[in-house]
Design a protein around this nucleic acid. Structure first.
Lengths: 397, 397
DNA sequence: TTTGTTTGTCTAGTGAATAAACAAAGCGTA
DNA sequence: TACGCTTTGTTTATTCACTAGACAAACAAA
């Protein structure tokens, strides 16, 4: 049993990481700015900045305006010191992004697939990574890692335990990718990644208690609590799609009945559409995209369908709000494309049902990163992991 | 904007608190034991222990057995260095405990009341505190604080915003008690307190991700995530009793419909009992205690009633498990008295409905502290708060 | 008795932070 | 233009907490 003990090295890590974080998020700043804002001594800041410059995480961009004295030397985070790759592995598509250390997309590549066998898909993933790798500019640290978001249950060792919509089981994905590319690989659930993406780069940057609702074929949830992703005991948190909202309701493939995602997902929408006989579509043409087209026409019954799905989304979100008292709900993944028809019913349900105290200071937003939430999220996992290792932990944010 | 910076003071605080914690939980230990287990240098431990002895948090109990060399001096946590008072303010009762710093109950007092007006009840609370205060032994630090758990929504400033079952609104309880007794006062929701009590002193000591289900007149939930109590943005988390498990179900006094607690609480049980016309009880005699008596006879229909409530409890717990992936569920508050009839249906529902991955390494337990969960929980809040401050905190601004 | 081990203290040294002095570079005004 | 005042960033001396290692005391076993 080893406990964490305090020593000077820990202090330095904390402070160095604080300084870097400040330059990263609030830059350009002078050394004096950093000292003043952090409360650290000027000398301390100087010495920490010197190290950061040596490591090429920070550089000087020249002098700023004087306010009556010597002109400051402005410092900027060197977002081009290394690059990260994030892969959103969906049920029908792969979206890969190459990002710099600030999370800016340098290059992206997306493909769709129909053959879901593991061999086929994983080969496409490798191709995508290789393609992005070829496009990567030279830099001090090169490729710092690869992140992959998957639609399924992932354990903390990076194995996909179960991905129902891909029909995959027990896949040691992290090992496989690490063995090929020889960089750290992070595998996480698509909803967790999306939540983190929105928190760090998207709609949730100002908030610390966020529930990200990934409404796609099913529903997954990513929880940002106290500013950090909450993963649960084994990393399986967020399977709220299988929350029962209707006792003895529709049977679900998970073995339960009345699960939320049976009423509020893309699948629920398409099921509902099948029952409509007034649609100018063949059964095999039924897609979310087509329904969105119809809704814009506008097609009354389709809009009503969206509204109904929105109401059910609101029911589950109500449950989550009463339990978590979050500051923000972010709705992401494919259904967020239907914002125009979902937003109102969701908000109506919450206004009517959710406890009044839990509604104060609460925001309901839609994804800001749209299709990039997950890919950027995993990419940012990799970046933070890298900076932590290089710098020492970002203990306090 | 002030950030937390690292300095030597922080190191010392971390290490000192580590040493104290170790002696507290694993004592009696020698200085050498502490050094070896913590990884700290022997000299460092010696100097920290010297301070702790000066502050009377630790004392030497004499020599232990030698294992072939000089005999060790054994150290023990001085749990009598101060005392804390915890009050469980229920809907019909007040339970007060005086505890030492280890959470042992030195004295307790409970009363019941029917007049729920604030003035009456608060006067009883004050009497209870005063009674316990009179019983308190002399000690270095005396009364270190008072904690009060209440059945309602409490904000982070210690105001009771809303306690439906007491018909209270906007009560600045913390201020009022502090002004009388002049010690730090902590007010929290009854479920949060119960969760913390079980985590630190009861059934949850070994686990870090726990959901405590306080099943009383209504249902509240206390969340222990990553070993810490999660309170949400404003401190309102855990109102899962108002999770909708039946869309368009029974109307709830909160304005919503189909809330969990309408089907799975003490109130639900009594409602159900009212419908039974075969009971040898008058309407006004209907209480949980009477029903428990009947169940032991055994009375078939009453047992069935308990089973039904258990099943519904299982439904909501299923929802929480799928969302949180906890390691342990603890069922507490009054309904835990019905363990014999509730445990089986709860476990059956979970086995049948909850995702299999979420069931591995999951425990379903009942409260170990029984009626003391909440009172001990708030008392322990006070203790931890005190120890944090005494050991040179001032970390957070 | 002797030898080796364990405990706990003491001393010297290290690393990181702070305070304060200082040099460099600018502005403003007489 | 000259001088004083500000602001920036570096340097130096000091403080503080921890570590390593020496050491004395206390003990078991041979």
């Amino acid at each position: 049993m080893r406990k964490i003990t305090g020593n000077q090295h820990l202090i330095k890590k904390i402070n160095k990481s604080l300084v870097l974080d400040m330059i990263k998020k609030q830059g350009p700043l002078s050394r004096a700015d950093v000292a003043q804002r952090s409360g650290l001594n000027k000398g301390t800041v100087s010495s920490l900045v010197k190290e950061l410059i040596d490591e090429e995480f920070v550089y000087e961009i020249g002098q700023g305006e004087s306010s009556g004295g010597r002109r400051p030397v402005l410092l900027l985070f060197n977002e081009k010191a290394g690059y990260s790759i994030g892969i959103d592995l969906g049920v029908h598509y792969i979206l890969g992004v190459l990002t710099d250390l600030q999370g800016n997309i340098i290059k992206e590549k997306s493909i769709t697939f129909n053959d879901k066998t593991y061999e086929t898909v994983i080969s496409l993933v490798k191709d995508t990574i290789q393609y992005l790798l070829n496009e990567m500019p030279d830099s001090r640290y090169g490729l710092i890692g690869i992140g992959i978001g998957v639609p399924g249950i992932v354990d903390k060792a990076g194995n996909i335990l179960f991905a129902p919509n891909l029909s995959w089981k027990n896949i040691p994905l992290k090992n496989e990718i690490e063995n090929i590319f020889h960089v750290p690989v992070i595998i996480d659930n698509e909803a967790n990644a999306g939540a983190y993406g929105e928190k760090r780069l998207g709609a949730g940057q100002e908030f610390d208690n966020i529930i990200y609702v990934s409404a796609g074929i099913g529903i997954g949830v990513g929880l940002i609590l106290k500013g950090e992703l909450y993963r649960g005991l084994n990393g399986f948190s967020g399977e709220s799609g299988h929350m029962i909202i209707q006792v003895d309701g529709k049977p679900c493939s998970c073995g339960s009945k009345g699960c939320w995602e049976l009423y509020a997902s893309e699948q629920a929408l398409l099921q509902g559409a099948k029952q409509l006989h007034t649609l100018p579509l063949k059964q095999e043409e039924l897609t979310l995209e087509k329904l969105l087209e119809l809704a814009t026409k506008p097609h009354k019954e389709v809009i009503q369908l969206f509204n109904q799905v929105g109401s059910y989304l609101g029911i589950g979100i109500n449950n989550l709000i009463n339990t978590f008292n979050p500051q923000q709900i972010i709705i992401g993944n494919r259904l967020s494309m239907a914002k125009n028809w979902l937003e109102k019913p969701i908000k109506q349900v919450i206004e009517a049902y959710t406890l009044p105290f839990h509604q104060t200071n609460l925001r309901i937003d839609f994804s800001k990163l749209s299709i990039y939430s997950t890919a950027l999220g995993v990419s940012f996992f990799v970046i933070e992991n890298f900076l932590k290792r290089e710098e020492g932990a970002a203990l306090f944010l």
